[in-house]
Write a protein that binds this DNA or RNA. Sequence first.
DNA 1: CTTTATACGGAACAGCGTTCCGTTTAGCAA
DNA 2: TTGCTAAACGGAACGCTGTTCCGTATAAAG
Lengths: 199, 199
Amino acid sequence: MKKPQAQEKSVKPSKRADAQRNIEALLKAALAVFAKSGVDAPIRDIAEKAGVGVGTVYRHFPQRSDLIVAVFRQEVDACADAAVALAAKYPPTEALSRWLLRFTEFVEAKRGLAAALHPGDPAYEPLRAYYDAKLRPAIAMLLNRAVAAGEIRAGVPPGDLLSAAVSLCRPAYDVAPDHTRRMLGLLIDGLRYGAVRER
Amino acid sequence: MKKPQAQEKSVKPSKRADAQRNIEALLKAALAVFAKSGVDAPIRDIAEKAGVGVGTVYRHFPQRSDLIVAVFRQEVDACADAAVALAAKYPPTEALSRWLLRFTEFVEAKRGLAAALHPGDPAYEPLRAYYDAKLRPAIAMLLNRAVAAGEIRAGVPPGDLLSAAVSLCRPAYDVAPDHTRRMLGLLIDGLRYGAVRER
DNA sequence: CTTTATACGGAACAGCGTTCCGTTTAGCAA
DNA sequence: TTGCTAAACGGAACGCTGTTCCGTATAAAG
């Protein structure tokens, strides 16, 4: 009963304000640098982009994997949050469609990262669990709404849809840039088939 | 009618003798260093162990992958050659058994290496083909001899046996050191089942 | 033996991870 | 507001590595 503060969103409580700011700046910078140069990018690049010294990076993220994990979690959170926001803003099926696109953007941006992790490094083991725990409920919610509206047929496991979306955006490297968008369109149309047909 | 020399075994002809020597010393040193420190080991370590300067390493193997590929090929060659030698020295089934053990040693020693290559690097693409082309005929020969002698049953595809051997020695990290040997014994015994039974 | 193309060795340069410590500053209390 | 102190910052410095470059050494040919 000492720390009556739970105001911040993600990172630890009871930190000095400048530390908070720097952590956030670092996560933001790391996101950009990882996307541009991969997860092996020089620490100095990230520090510079965040406007801090390298010492500060090591203070908050002693291991490179700590930074990677933090960025990944943040992105997963953002993706899951987007589901709620989209659900509030668009009709069921459009929300689902938009979220799938959002999700594939996430997957594409993180593919190099995910590949770099795979080598059974225990430091990244919790990530997959986190990913499932956050994203599956998100898509399940969107799916349920669309089903309830009679626009999408029932019986599609949320996990399957997630996997399908991942697969569909995989060969997006060497094809037209809107390949993913078109494939998702097909997927949504496929889900519509067999819906209750109420209009 | 200028170069009546085809005496050397593997590397290119028409090289200066000291270059030949250094190349061989480098391959030998790289084999040892890779085994001890992995394929990311410092070039300097390899140069030192081979008793040459780093410049010499880069002269003969401009890319790190060139060295890795050369070492790998050499090991595959040695493994394939061992099949012939064993066939000449031991009775059919014992030759097969001994070769499988030899093969698993090769696989274990190269596992870290193989993992490091996997990331679809085109520089290593030919390796898998080379591996298949050299090793499958080797085991096929041994297998045929054992089958012809009536000690092993026919109908086992050589590639399957190769795969099985690879699988069997996989969990050899955290178990007793003779795990692989025992598993191979079981495999050989399994092959014996259904043999012609001529004695 | 002379010559010359080839190969050698290792100093030198550049980039990166990581540590360390003098300096700065947020938060608090008087 | 003014001190005070623990927390945090920044970046120089160190060590290790990849890679290049060029003066030196030498194998091979005539």
